[in-house]
Amino acid sequence: MSTGMYEGAIQDLIDALGRLPGIGPKSAQRIAFHILQSDSEIAANLVEAVRTVKERVKFCTQCGNVSEETECRICRDPRRDGTKICVVEESKDVIAIERTREFRGKYHVLGGAISPIDGIGPDQLRIRELMQRLSDSTITEIILATDPNLEGEATATYLARLIKPMGINVSRLASGLPVGGDLEYADEVTLGRAFEGRTNL
């Protein structure tokens, strides 16, 4: 991956940064030198933030959302409707849907979408955990809120075919969402409307 132009620690940092999503080799180099040249306090804060997030933040054992406790805030909330589960790809999608205030049920975070070319199949996602939750008969409705793109659609189709035979009501967010994009890019009004007008599969 790296061209190995610098020696030792600085190259290690460039390599580590370059493995992060959305950071190419040139950006990695720029960030590394920025850190090198900035106050030690800035670097210390960064180190501390990275350490703390790994120590403190875990994934909710119920829904897979990020959480500082064993169960997340939403799963712990007794006012949430436990008969409805909204299935999303990432934790950020939970935030986007929460902003609409259209949904008072609980969530299930898959951790991505099915994408064979990226080596992601059903086994790489939290689908087994979802099926376990569904064996609890109090759940009556599943809303599939995967992203409105090819991989999100494929994941929704796969799940619908798995869940419908169990006699659970399965619906998909209504169209009107920007096609090809991420759920998080949809504004609150559009996303809220898509929620209200969800279609039964």
Binding site: P116, G121, E153, A156, Y158, L162
Partner: peptide, 14 residues
């Protein structure tokens, strides 16, 4: 990868 039919269906539909 000789994937099973239920894995293919979502892509066949699209």
């Amino acid at each position: 990868t000789r994937a099973p039919e239920n894995a293919l269906v979502p892509w066949t539909e699209q």
